[in-house]
Amino acid sequence: MTGALALRAAAEQQASTLPPLLAAAEQLASTVILGDHGRRRAGTGDTFWQYRPAQSTDHARSIDWRRSARSDVSFVQDKEWQIAQSVTLWVDRGASMRFASTDKLPEKATVARTLALACAILLIRGGERVGLTGNDLPARRGTAQITQMANLLARDDAADYALPDARGMAPHSRAVFISDFMGDMTGVQDALTRAADNGVRGALVQILDPQEEAFPFDGRTIFESMTGTLRHETLKAGDLRNRYLDRLAARKDHLTQLARTTGWQFSTHHTGAPATQALLWLYQSLAQPA
């Protein structure tokens, strides 16, 4: 096969995954009922939200005299809070994310990509700018951005574990990192520190297969990474269970502390659970004030 034909075949194979991925993301986004103003609250903006009784801290020029004339109470207008910053997403495309313990469960990568795209769909519907970290896809508005995002997210990395990319995040914006966070934590810490130094706040979503939480192994077992570069054989896998679970708990504690220190939020989602709750948590986390 010539180089051109090989490239076309690879492109067609990659593109064939986009319709199911986009359809799954659209379906997931539709399960979260937010209305047209799912994130709104009082704040700086130009759009009227509601009247409320004036308080002693309100300036006289803030009083709506026309509305107040119809009552014995003075009223002011609350404006709808408008998010000025963009939202950038990093989704782990490392080989470890292609793991699924059974054919009845989706791969971690599928869940991560669907969750990221569904969140992007909701944000763009709300008028937000959304993009990917790095320099491949700067944050923009519009539905065409979703297709470009899906195309980039469908690409897999060759390495077992990918490192978060903190490039391309505008100062004082929002960001999302979605990964199993099973690799080197130094890269995660560096990315979060760099983000925090620029005033970026966001959310960490850890995607795990139920088997990775339970460690249901006993007897002779061969553990092998998705690329085959890492391999460990043991005759007593059960003896490793407590050590593994302790290390997993320590990893989650580390992520929790990193998030707290840098002003981010952290949550774990399992591939066997409905993604609706994870999407709602993620969407609401991005609405938190800086």
Results as ranks from 00 to 15, higher is better:
residue 268 T to N: 09
residue 64 D to E: 12
residue 275 A to K: 09
residue 218 D to C: 11
residue 61 R to F: 12
residue 185 M to P: 02
residue 151 N to F: 09
residue 44 T to K: 14
residue 108 K to H: 09
residue 249 A to G: 01
residue 27 Q to P: 01
residue 115 L to W: 10
residue 252 K to F: 07
residue 100 A to K: 13
residue 162 A to W: 02
residue 63 I to D: 05
residue 175 A to Y: 06
residue 233 E to D: 10
residue 126 G to H: 11
residue 80 E to F: 03
residue 106 P to F: 01
residue 63 I to G: 06
residue 103 D to C: 06
residue 225 S to R: 01
residue 41 R to E: 14
residue 239 D to L: 11
residue 153 L to M: 08
residue 233 E to H: 09
residue 117 L to S: 06
residue 220 R to E: 13
residue 111 V to F: 07
residue 17 T to P: 00
residue 53 P to R: 15
residue 229 T to L: 12
residue 2 T to S: 15
residue 191 A to M: 01
residue 191 A to W: 01
residue 266 F to D: 01
residue 167 R to C: 05
residue 153 L to N: 07
residue 134 G to E: 00
residue 52 R to F: 10
residue 139 A to Q: 08
residue 9 A to H: 05
residue 17 T to W: 01
residue 199 G to M: 02
residue 66 R to T: 10
residue 262 T to H: 13
residue 226 M to E: 13
residue 231 R to T: 12
residue 11 A to L: 11
residue 150 A to W: 05
residue 245 L to P: 03
residue 148 Q to I: 00
residue 85 Q to I: 00
residue 60 A to G: 05
residue 202 G to L: 00
residue 62 S to E: 15
residue 146 I to R: 00
residue 7 L to W: 04
residue 218 D to H: 15
residue 206 Q to P: 00
residue 238 G to Y: 11
residue 178 I to V: 08
residue 36 D to L: 13
residue 127 G to R: 05
residue 135 N to M: 04
residue 135 N to V: 04
residue 129 R to E: 12
residue 290 A to R: 14
residue 59 H to L: 12
residue 115 L to D: 06
residue 233 E to V: 10
residue 118 A to W: 04
residue 226 M to G: 03
residue 94 G to R: 04
residue 211 Q to M: 13
residue 220 R to L: 05
residue 38 G to V: 03
residue 246 D to A: 15
residue 187 G to H: 08
residue 258 L to K: 00
residue 58 D to M: 10
residue 227 T to H: 04
residue 279 L to G: 08
residue 170 A to Q: 15
residue 76 V to T: 13
residue 69 A to I: 06
residue 136 D to T: 15
residue 9 A to K: 07
residue 103 D to E: 14
residue 209 D to A: 04
residue 123 L to S: 09
residue 153 L to S: 03
residue 26 E to R: 15
residue 50 Q to A: 14
residue 239 D to N: 12
residue 35 G to V: 07
residue 33 I to E: 15
residue 52 R to Q: 12
residue 166 A to P: 11
residue 22 L to S: 02
residue 286 L to Y: 04
residue 95 A to T: 07
residue 126 G to Y: 01
residue 57 T to D: 15
residue 233 E to N: 03
residue 202 G to Q: 03
residue 31 T to N: 05
residue 39 R to W: 14
residue 76 V to P: 11
residue 272 G to N: 14
residue 196 A to R: 10
residue 11 A to C: 03
residue 240 L to P: 00
residue 209 D to Q: 08
residue 226 M to L: 15
residue 244 Y to F: 10
residue 152 L to H: 12
residue 90 W to A: 09
residue 227 T to Y: 08
residue 271 T to S: 11
residue 115 L to F: 07
residue 188 V to Q: 04
